[in-house]
Nucleic acid binder design. Structure first.
Lengths: 153, 153
DNA sequence: TAAGATTGATGCTTCAATCTTC
DNA sequence: GAAGATTGAAGCATCAATCTTA
C-alpha cells in the first residue's frame, strides 16, 4: 500500500519569529494581569474565562465539556475548576434534561457580580500592557490568529 | 499634593478581540505541541525553551534569573526546572567568577542533542497549526506583539 | 539593605482509571 | 463500545521565608 507519508511541513524563520512573539507577549501580559488580580484579592484569570464563557452562552449555561473546549483546559481540570467556582457560589451545576450523563454549569447572580468586579482590573491590564504597544494594529494581529483558532478541531 | 491618579486606560473592542485571539491561538497550538512531544516520549515545551535560550546565549550559559526572565517563569520555578534538566544531564550549574551568590546554567552536549531531537516535533507543530493558518501574515502578527514584549520591563 | 538562589507549603493541572448513561 | 464527568496519583508552578553574598 502507498504509505501515508505526510511530508513534514517546513517552517520558515518569519513564522517562527511570529510564533515566538505570540508566546512572549501572551506570557508577559498574563503574568501582569494575574499579579494585578491577586493584589486586588480577586480570583485568577481562569475564573474570569469561565464566568465570561457562561455569560455569553445561551441561558447563561454550558456543558462542562464545552467549557473545557472554550478555555482550553482538560475535562479533568475543568471539572475541578467548576468545583471551586461552585463552592464560591459563582455558578451552580444543573441537570441536563435529555442527557443524564452530563451537567450544565450555570452562571449565578454572584458569578455575574464577580465578573463585574474582575473586569476593570483585567481591562486595565490589557489596555496598558497589550493595547498600548499594539496601537492601531489590532486587526493585523486578530485576523491571522483567529484563523489559527478556527483551524483547531 | 496632586494625586497621582493615572486615568484608567479605556479598552476598545478591537483590542479586546485581538487579545482574545492571542490567548486562543497560543493555548491551542501549545496544547497540540505538548501532546506531540509527550507522544514522542520527549520532555515538555518548557525544557525546549530553556535549552534554546542557553543555546543562543554567549558561552551557552545564562544566570538562573536571566533564564527565568527569558521564558517568563518565577525564579522559584526556574530553580526547580533547572534541577530537573540538570538531573537529566542536559545542563550543569557552574559558579559565577565575580559573584558568588549566583550560578550559571550551562548547556551540555546532551542538552544540545535533546534540543535537536525536540525541534522536529516542535517545528512540525508550529508549521501545521500556526504557520499554516497564518500564511503570509506573519509580519503583521510579529511586529505589534514584539512591541508588547519590548514594553515589558 | 538589597539581590541571587533555594527550600517548604500549597494549589492547580494532567493522565489513567472508573462510573454512569447513551 | 463510546461519550460525559469525576476521582486518585503525580508533576509542576507559585508565594513566603531563608540563606548567602554584594
Amino acid at each position: 500500500m502507498a504509505t501515508k507519508s505526510r511530508p513534514v511541513p517546513k517552517l520558515d524563520p518569519q513564522h517562527l519569529a511570529a510564533w515566538r512573539a505570540v508566546l512572549g507577549a501572551q506570557a508577559r501580559v498574563v503574568r501582569r494581569v494575574e499579579r494585578a488580580l491577586s493584589e486586588a484579592e480577586l480570583p485568577p484569570l481562569a475564573w474570569y474565562d469561565v464566568l465570561w464563557a457562561l455569560y455569553e452562552a445561551d441561558g447563561r449555561r454550558l456543558r462542562i465539556r464545552e467549557l473545557a473546549d472554550a478555555v482550553v483546559l482538560s475535562p479533568t481540570g475543568m471539572s475541578r475548576l467548576v468545583d471551586r467556582i461552585e463552592a464560591a457560589g459563582c455558578l451552580r451545576r444543573e441537570a441536563v434534561p435529555d442527557d443524564r450523563r452530563g451537567a450544565y454549569a450555570v452562571l449565578t447572580a454572584k458569578g455575574t457580580a464577580l465578573l463585574r468586579r474582575m473586569w476593570p482590573i483585567y481591562e486595565a491590564g490589557i489596555a496598558e500592557h497589550f493595547a498600548g504597544p499594539v496601537g492601531r494594529d489590532s486587526a493585523k494581529v486578530r485576523a491571522p490568529l483567529q484563523r489559527v483558532i478556527d483551524a483547531a478541531p
